[in-house]
Amino acid sequence: MITVAVADDHALFKSGIIELIQSQPDMEVLFDASNGKEFIDRLVKSKGIDIAVIDIEMPVMNGFDLTDYLHKNYPAIKIIVLSAYSQERFVVKLIECGAAGFLSKNCQPKELFDAIRQTHDCGFYLTPDAFKVMQRARTISKKYKNINNIPVELTAREMEVLKLICGEMTNHEIADELCVSVRTIEGHRNNLILKTGSRNTAGLVLFAVRYNIIDALS
């Protein structure tokens, strides 16, 4: 069972999201909140969650601050931002803050379900539009360099694992593909996060895009 919590200050929209998630047999909403502070207060009293679905614009404590707080204090929780904003500065900043996925508020229910499941299983979810935003940011970023100028030294196996991660494969699937143990892949993933300075798997994808390691999600 994938446990979820929702934070949004629009009561009607939040109720609809909760009802949709609760309709899935493999998902359960444990609590909801109207702002970041309320979310944290309820999280402390809960038994823990797998996925946080949060809005950007909220009173008291917004989505950026909540994402940053959760990443620092509850790194196991994967964060999906569901918002009306899709500009480059929002998508890239949210991933840099620690978000694992980004969805538009006008997405279809199936996309919400897919995002929750993929984020739970693979560690990230990026829509084609969000990925294009990352590519555009890459082309104008002063930090952008090509694959021959990656600022860290990655082994051939780490590069291989990184590309498979970006291909939306789970640790088990990558282990089967490379004929190694899941623990070995977990070690490579952790090393990649440390070496690249990424906050999570979505950060690894952003790194791969910035340095032209990948051009498009499979």
Rank of each mutant, 00 (worst) to 15 (best):
A130R: 05
K142V: 13
P59Y: 10
R189F: 10
K45V: 15
G16K: 00
L82A: 02
D215Q: 10
E158W: 07
Q118D: 12
S46L: 06
M1Q: 11
K93R: 14
F131A: 08
A202R: 01
R157L: 11
E38C: 02
P75R: 06
E28M: 08
M27V: 05
N106W: 10
Q22T: 13
R199G: 13
N190M: 14
V81W: 00
V205P: 00
L217M: 14
Y85G: 01
D9F: 07
Q108S: 13
T127Q: 07
A216Y: 13
K143E: 14
I214R: 08
R136Y: 14
E168K: 14
I77A: 02
A5S: 11
E96W: 00
N148C: 09
N212Y: 15
V180N: 03
A130V: 09
I193W: 06
K47A: 09
L206P: 01
D176G: 08
R189N: 06
F131L: 13
G203R: 07
I51G: 01
D55K: 01
I116P: 03
G63W: 00
V91A: 07
N148G: 05
V205E: 06
N146I: 03
I193V: 11
D32A: 10
K143A: 15
G101R: 01
S15T: 13
Y144G: 11
L204V: 08
V152Q: 09
M169C: 11
N212M: 14
N171W: 02
L70G: 03
E19D: 12
H172P: 03
V91P: 04
V6G: 00
G187T: 11
T3Y: 12
Q108A: 11
I2Q: 08
T127C: 09
V205R: 01
D68K: 14
V44F: 13
Y125P: 04
I116Q: 05
T67W: 03
D68W: 10
A208N: 08
Y85C: 08
T201C: 08
M61Y: 08
M58S: 04
A100P: 00
I147Y: 15
I150Q: 09
L103K: 06
C179W: 11
M58T: 03
T201N: 11
P75I: 04
A115W: 04
A137M: 13
I116G: 04
